[in-house]
């Protein structure tokens, strides 16, 4: 994440028209934006790159009118998601992603033997947990990526998922709790020193 003070300085330099600061901001955040964008619309890399392009050119055009964000990464991820949703809505793309609240309820819990097979098929811990995470409802997946990888606070996650802070924290809690329960049976032989 870098030091926030440093980033605030970079941001102010960029607002004053400093090319290098702008390029540095791009380099610091483009990979996070790319992975987050791809996780929202996995089918279209080119589309995600277009949206990143739009976000960066827009902040350049509006640079003198922007305020300094508390967390630049959050600001950029939020702008990216807004842009993606806007374009998807306008173009009514076929691969519109399902992200309404009800969707979580439709998500069925994987059956126990399904998990068993997954454990057997997983070559290592990383694979196993990755597969378990992919069983979580999409919004829970998005929430834990934002919490544990991008290190955003719950208020920010809540903004990105259009919900209140408490719901965002609950979402992360439910995901972690589920992973813990799924992992518990396997600890004896896979994770000898796990829980």
């Amino acid at each position: 994440m870098g030091e926030p003070t440093n980033e605030r300085q970079l941001w102010q330099d960029f607002q004053n028209g400093d090319d290098d600061a702008y390029t540095q901001l791009y380099r610091l955040h483009v990979r996070a934006m790319y992975r987050y964008g791809l996780s929202l619309v996995p089918v279209s890399e080119a589309f995600v790159l277009d949206c990143i392009h739009d976000v960066f050119t827009e902040i350049w055009a509006k640079r003198t009118r922007l305020s300094v964000p508390d967390n630049v990464r959050y600001y950029l991820l939020k702008s990216l998601k807004t842009r993606i949703l806007h374009l998807l809505k306008r173009q009514e793309r076929p691969h519109q992603f399902v992200s309404q609240d009800d969707f979580d309820d439709l998500w069925t819990e994987p059956a126990n033997d399904e998990l068993q097979t997954q454990e057997e098929e997983s070559i290592n811990k990383q694979e196993l947990i990755k597969n378990l995470i992919s069983q979580l409802p999409p919004r829970q997946q998005e929430a834990i990526r934002l919490r544990f990888v991008e290190n955003l606070e719950y208020t920010q996650i809540a903004e990105l998922l259009s919900m209140n802070r408490q719901s965002a924290q609950n979402l992360v809690f439910r995901a972690v709790e589920k992973l813990r329960n799924w992992l518990l049976p396997s600890l004896f032989y896979l994770f000898s020193r796990f829980f």
């Binding site: 390029t23 791009y26 380099r27 483009v30 990979r31 790319y34 992975r35 791809l38 996780s39 790159l49 990143i52 392009h53 811990k125 990383q126 196993l128 947990i129 990755k130 378990l132 995470i133 834990i144 990526r145 544990f148 990888v149 972690v176 992973l179 813990r180 992992l183 994770f191 020193r193 796990f194 829980f195």
Partner: peptide
Amino acid sequence: RLLEAVKLGLNEYTRTYLTPEAEAMLL
């Protein structure tokens, strides 16, 4: 340890790779 496990599972996401060429072209 639980946090370690979750982070391990998210490893592939964390390391989603954007080639230097693509990064340069986009810039």
